[in-house]
Design a protein around this nucleic acid. Structure first.
Lengths: 104, 104
DNA sequence: TCCATATATCGAGATATCGCGATAAACGTT
DNA sequence: AACGTTTATCGCGATATCTCGATATATGGA
């Protein structure tokens, strides 16, 4: 997790929305049978939901990944993205300690 | 506090640094005797510390204020800026609930 | 009133981000 | 090898942000 890149990645409503959608797999169409055992959501589903171009969403996921907020796994032609909960909590903790007054 | 503007305001290392400096008044030169009873730090001191131009710092403080992260008070020719601790905590709480997985 | 000081606003050039379409790369299937 | 599908990368015009110097505004003092 890189706080600098993470803040930049979060400085965009669609990227924040995608992170929120990824909290719950049921925000997306069901996985194909052959992907039933994998977690994460493929780029195409995210693109469909966000209603932006394929290249834009691919780039967005790249930002989120570079920031460390999501993990990705490629299976065949598909890349599955899922939240990195640990990194997200770490980010929140870092923001808290950077922003909070000492006594709080 | 406006989460959209707050994230944008925080998406800049100098503005984050200023917020951090403002945690402790002793990061700046002592107040003039006639300002001893006021809290907050004047723009000039912040500028000196950040080593950017006067106009840049004034604009930065405007961003932080528009985001609701700081409060300002004018006394004579000086504007004193201080952190809005309540708003900052509210921002952190909002980020937490927006980013965190439901079960966390 | 005139001047000095502190801050805010304006206008501009440099740089970064946005979001796209086109194209490339990766992979599976035939 | 050739093709279809999925994702990643490239190049670009549009827009936003950065940071500055110059200027305007606000205030207090001589």
């Amino acid at each position: 997790m890189e706080i600098e890149k993470a803040i930049a990645a979060l400085n965009n409503p669609v990227r924040r929305q995608i992170l929120a959608w990824l909290k719950d797999r049921s925000n997306f169409p069901p996985a194909l049978p052959e992907h039933a055992d994998l977690d994460g959501v493929c780029v195409g589903y995210i693109q469909e939901k966000a209603n932006l171009s394929q290249s834009t969403i691919s780039t967005y996921m790249g930002h989120l990944k570079a920031a460390g907020l999501v993990k990705s796994e490629r299976h065949g032609q598909w890349t599955f993205y899922r939240r990195d909960e640990e990194a997200i909590q770490q980010f929140l903790a870092l923001m808290g300690s950077e922003l909070s007054q000492a006594g709080n």
